[in-house]
Amino acid sequence: MWGIIPAAGNGTRIQPLAFSKELLPVGSFRDDDGTERPKAVSEYLVERMVAGGATKICFVISPTKSDIVRYYGGGVAAGGGRVDTAFVVQPQAAGLCDAVFRACPLVGADEPVLVGLPDTIWFPADALARLPDDRLSFLLFPVERPELFDAVVLDGDRVREIQVKQADAHSRWVWGAFKMPGRVLHELHALWQRPDRRDEYIGTLVNAWLALGNEAVGVRAGESYVDVGTLGGYREAVALLGGAP
């Protein structure tokens, strides 16, 4: 199973930094020898993807983010071993859809795919394991201000609509990560390549895909979700981790 991590953004909301925003230290961990070290914010997503079944991680980076290659180029630690990493370049920031689809040549039609955002921290850490392998599914979290995110409107557990940063959002549940078979990734990519599309946001593209008669589900397994891409979000993440078990 692939885990795709779009990490090519400029991080303008929290700059200036002397490094890529995905390497922002948030919290800490202990090495095998007991030494405590800072933990990069993107490591939380990597850990959650591995807990959700990912055996390979693909980082989509910009040409300037060689520090991410240095940090993760030897693979990522997981369960006492290491998970292989691949790096794909997005030449310029062109939206989440463009970033995710850069990984398409690596993904077979029969391989499940996880996608998450590297500047977020959320709980429970094993929530991705609750998403089905055989369909497009979104891991949902309750938030107080859904208008800042992509709110997911459900009919039961079926996704009816994704409202992208909509002021009058009809749901307080937002997606924090999603999973799909490789064939669905390629279907979405083909739709996105149509001359009338080239969506920036996953939500608008999925809405068009649903309108063609396809189905997606929302899994309300998330409990807490923080976007660390702003100074306020960073403080919130520190507080969240301070109270985490």
Rank of each mutant, 00 (worst) to 15 (best):
S42M: 07
W173A: 03
G108Q: 08
A103D: 06
L148S: 10
Y44E: 10
F59T: 10
L140A: 12
D134N: 11
D126H: 07
F123W: 14
S62D: 10
V174E: 02
V115M: 12
P142S: 06
L140V: 13
V113S: 05
K179H: 15
T64P: 00
Q90H: 03
D133C: 08
R158N: 09
R172W: 12
A94V: 02
A127I: 12
L136R: 06
A54C: 00
I57M: 04
G52S: 11
G108A: 13
G52F: 11
P181W: 04
M49E: 03
I57R: 04
D98F: 15
P91C: 02
T85H: 06
F101R: 03
H170V: 01
G74E: 13
C58W: 03
K56F: 00
I162K: 04
D157I: 03
Y44L: 05
T64E: 11
R135K: 14
L106D: 08
W175N: 15
D67P: 06
C97L: 03
F87D: 07
V152H: 13
P118H: 11
A177I: 05
G52N: 10
V164W: 11
M49V: 12
P105H: 06
E147L: 06
V113C: 02
Q92V: 13
P142Q: 10
A177W: 10
I61S: 02
D119L: 05
V152L: 09
C104K: 07
V100Y: 00
R82A: 15
L114F: 15
I57W: 01
G116D: 08
L96I: 14
E144T: 14
A125I: 10
R160T: 04
V88Q: 09
A94M: 13
L45T: 11
V89C: 10
V60A: 00
S66I: 13
I68Y: 00
A51E: 15
P63D: 01
R70N: 09
V164Q: 05
L128G: 01
R48H: 12
V60P: 04
A167M: 09
R82G: 00
F101I: 05
G176E: 06
G75T: 05
D98G: 07
M180G: 03
K179T: 10
W175R: 08
I57Q: 03
V107Y: 07
V76P: 01
L117M: 12
V88L: 04
V89T: 15
R82N: 08
F141N: 08
R158I: 00
T55N: 06
H170M: 05
A109W: 02
D168L: 07
E47T: 08
S62T: 11
G75M: 02
C104R: 12
R82C: 09
Y72E: 01
D84P: 00
Q90D: 07
A86I: 02
P112G: 06
F59C: 03
I68H: 08
L45P: 04
Y72G: 06
A78W: 02
S171F: 08
A77M: 10
P142R: 13
A169G: 04
L45E: 13
V76A: 14
P132C: 00
A103M: 09
L114S: 02
K56R: 15
L45Q: 10
D84L: 12
D155Y: 05
V83Y: 02
V41H: 11
L154D: 14
R135Q: 15
V88W: 12
D67L: 01
F123T: 14
T85R: 10
R82T: 15
D133Y: 01
A109Y: 01
V115L: 08
V115G: 01
R158H: 12
V60T: 04
L96W: 07
P118K: 03
